[in-house]
């Protein structure tokens, strides 16, 4: 947090070379046709194994309240559009929360059950199930004024040089987008497909896990899962991708 504040002061004025709307493209388009085909076919996309679990968890009564997600929310299909507008401001937490945190708020506040661990099978599965309902919908960040300072902090973090390599996210994802880095095409960093089945992980993982990988790549200290810094970055990434079609659960190399 100290670092975030320090850098905010230093670089608050830096303007980013934002990608014009017409040039925005999902990381999907930087993948080889065979990996694209894996994402396109629900039977070849291993993420669907998590969605299957998500359906199970959705209907399980849990916690002291002995209620299931379905008891309050009905069919998972009713979650259409939700993932496309998260993170959002949660009144019950008085803070912006991403979808994982929203689900965990329902765990603790509604079901009266212990929160799921980040990247646990349960949380990823439920997130995948909820996210899948927003497929093909446009990313639509809420215009909630309470989110503004956080989205702004995310924008600043995105443009701030950090880590031992002294790189910013923008230097790779905007200035060098489409170029090659050790065999990988540098994508524009749009959060359109999360959670993703990443071939590297051989597993489903969250956007925060992806960001963590980039921070490690920059030789910067990754934040703890759920840290407000990640939520701020997520908010900004969603704003940057506003209008793009949601494609979760995606496949990425």
């Amino acid at each position: 947090m100290k670092r975030l504040l320090g850098a905010l002061l230093l670089l608050a004025a830096q303007a980013s070379a934002e990608i014009p709307e017409a040039e925005r493209r999902s990381g999907y388009h930087d993948m080889s046709p065979s990996v694209q085909a894996m994402q396109d076919d629900d039977m070849a996309n291993p993420a669907m194994l998590w969605v299957l679990d998500g359906e199970k968890f959705w209907n399980q009564r849990q916690g002291a309240a002995n209620e299931s997600c379905a008891d309050c929310h009905g069919e998972a299909a009713r979650m259409a559009g939700v993932a496309a507008r998260y993170p959002a401001f949660a009144t019950d937490a008085n803070a912006p929360v991403n979808l994982d945190q929203r689900i965990n708020l329902c765990r603790t506040e509604q079901q009266k059950a212990p929160a799921f661990e980040y990247e646990s099978r349960e949380l990823l599965s439920l997130n995948a199930l909820v996210s899948m309902q927003s497929r093909e919908q446009q990313i639509a960040p809420p215009s909630d004024p309470r989110l503004l300072p956080f989205t702004q902090a995310g924008a600043e973090a995105f443009n701030r040089r950090q880590g031992q390599l002294n790189l910013s996210c923008a230097q790779c994802h905007e200035d060098n987008r489409g170029r090659k880095l050790a065999g990988a095409t540098i994508p524009q960093a749009h959060p359109t497909g999360y959670p993703i089945y990443r071939l590297e992980w051989q597993s489903l993982g969250s956007l925060q896990r992806r960001l963590r990988n980039c921070l490690i790549g920059m030789r910067a200290e990754p934040y703890a899962y759920g840290a407000p810094e990640y939520v701020a970055l997520e908010l900004y990434l969603m704003k940057r991708a506003a209008g793009m079609p949601f494609e979760a659960p995606g496949v990425r190399p």
């Binding site: 076919d41 039977m43 070849a44 291993p46 669907m48 194994l49 051989q202």
Partner: peptide, 8 residues
Amino acid sequence: VKTLIQHP
């Protein structure tokens, strides 16, 4: 026939 199974 397409099949997918969870296994490490």
